[in-house]
Design a protein around this nucleic acid. Structure first.
Lengths: 210, 210, 210, 210
DNA sequence: TATGAATGAGTATTCATTCAT
DNA sequence: AATGAATGAATACTCATTCAT
């Protein structure tokens, strides 16, 4: 009678994030359609019915998974950029670093792959994601590039295209990790990969100081 | 070898590729799970039952879609590399160019995104794809990089990581086009994007000739 | 018997009838199956759990709704008949009048339609309703008809069938009001309808006094 | 190998009416909500999936059940009225007779009770039923009454209310039969019931010919 | 070969009921 | 007594697959 684990735990506060975490895991692992809500509930340690107390349906759960977690990091990076004073290249490094610590090495790392896989099926959510994550990240990088080109720190290139080249490998890293990367026998070390990316970027972008 | 093959026969032999083409379209557009075989059959202009005369089941159709089309291009690129004589950078350009003409601007362009989205659900197919497409493409790029570094044309970097940095933007371009790229209001021009990619690559990789 | 009963206590005793009233409203409006107990509880201003303190389950609540309310009116009509002294037709008028005042123009008016709709699903309750409402009402009307025929006031007809003809329009009125009557653009006035019913009945039943 | 009953019978033509008939039976017996589509399918001798080949969903099946069967009878009665030449009362008799033969003693007899029970849950269908069955039946009876009153055959009464009094017992008979009538130990004989109804109607309506 | 009617396993969702607080 | 979080049985509906024609 002491601390017998109660069959029915009451934890209204904690439920949403437990469910979201379980849903993220399974959505990333199996994709939206192949994820059974009962499995999500079980992984979160509750029954099917309980899930519906917190999320109206599967799509609502999916939306919550996407909206949660990444947007705050963009906000933080916007603040980092606003406060930055050093070289433009070091700003790019800071932004990348923050993204990695808050997304890349956390459970949220699977979201980009999930969003890419399901974009066509959830245009509304994809549009939201594009506007609130992608577009804002691009604006941040674009501003840093602009600043660097104006100060003579960077070579001049088309800004939009350069943004793509800067961001793509970072996104690709995460997408890869949750898809075909699993079949690579020698897994790439993400930190090394990013280091090389930055190194090449530096050589490609920065005007050599003779 | 005459061209007097009866229309009916020709039709019959064309069926698989009509089905494959329809399946590719829908798999890319909706994902594996959300694609209904009846829709595939209708798009190919046959009945549901007919599809089963050619492919044992949905998974077999998916395998065929993936296996078809891309592997031959890798073979062609291997031949291009074997015959190549100029600079290592120009080899990279040739390989990219061929890939673009045979995949990037064709219906097969959607396969990378499809494979990324479904890799976890079809480990066997993903492994096949990894071994026959990814690994071989990496080997080609790796050999070109190795050659360039040995000849002094390229800076020395870790080969594996550099391969990632070379390939990632190319893959990303296609993945993007079939996912979140749809929500970008100013669509990136793929050729411009690739040109910038190569330009940065050149600046990052190549030793400056004073 | 003081009126100093504490508010809380009074509230508690009122619960069952508040629940019954809410249940009657919703059962009549939506039918048994489509009525959610949570809605009943909410309409009664209590929580779902509280409902179960008073009624063991949905069926028990349904039984209580049916048993409550109508049986007492039959008892009252039996007393009216016992005390009656005038013409047999005026007794029929009195019985109808009482029924109308105690059922027809109250919230209980919906019960006949509800009982008709659910009779097959709840044979036990339907049998109870038949025995305690229908059969006793028929006996009352039958006795009045018998008396009138014996006294020469009414034409002679088969009693049982005549009972049907007398009662049917009255029941129909209520059933209609809670079903298809809602779609009639010119709603029938119930009092006028009953007046015509009685008029025709008089003409059909009563021997003309030349 | 001779006439082994095929597990899968192909009978596209016959299916809809078989399904409709099974659905009518169960909807009338259990009500809309309590009827399981699998039971409907089984009663029709097919599987769940087959039902969906013919009706998009439960509601569509319900609609089809209601729309089927009764409307044609109204049309027939309209033709009977148009061709009629004798007394107005004999027209009423003809209309009733036809209704009884085509609805009252067939499987469609359960529809009025079904419609009454579900009217609130399917306002759209109820409105359709009201417009195409009830309103047209009332118009027919109303015209007969009007004609009789104008010719001096009938007493003058308010037409609308008299329509109610004429129709109500006929509807009530069927509603009763499929609900509480089941609990009556001495089942009323429908034909006798209708005969008394007409008799009383005649006495109530018709001007005595001295 | 080709068809498309038929099947039934599988899943999202609802809601009566329970029970710890 | 009262609450409302949690449960899980039940059912509508989908769609890959089969098979008689």
């Amino acid at each position: 009678m002491h601390s017998a684990v109660p069959a029915r735990k009451r934890r209204k506060e904690a439920r949403p994030s437990e469910l979201l975490s379980a849903a993220l895991t399974l959505f990333v692992e199996k994709g939206y359609a192949a994820t059974r809500l009962e499995d999500v509930a079980n992984l979160a340690g509750v029954s099917k019915g309980t899930l519906y107390l917190y999320y109206a349906n599967k799509e609502a759960l999916f939306k919550a998974v996407i909206q949660e977690g990444i947007v705050p990091v963009i906000v933080e990076n916007e603040e980092i950029a606003a406060r930055h004073t050093g070289s433009s290249f070091s700003l790019l490094e800071k932004l990348l670093d923050h993204w990695w610590n808050r997304i890349g090495c956390t459970a949220y790392a699977g979201i980009p792959k999930l969003m890419v896989a399901e974009a066509q099926n959830f245009p509304e959510i994809a549009a939201y994601y594009y506007a609130n994550v992608i577009a804002r990240a691009r604006a941040l990088v674009g501003a840093a590039l602009q600043r660097g080109m104006e100060s003579g720190e960077f070579h001049r290139h088309d800004i939009e295209l350069t943004i793509d080249v800067v961001i793509a490998p970072v996104l690709m890293l995460l997408i890869w990790e949750f898809s075909l990367g699993q079949f690579q026998n020698t897994a790439t070390n993400p930190r090394d990969y990013l280091a090389v990316h930055m190194k090449l970027l530096q050589q490609g972008l920065c005007v050599a100081r003779v």
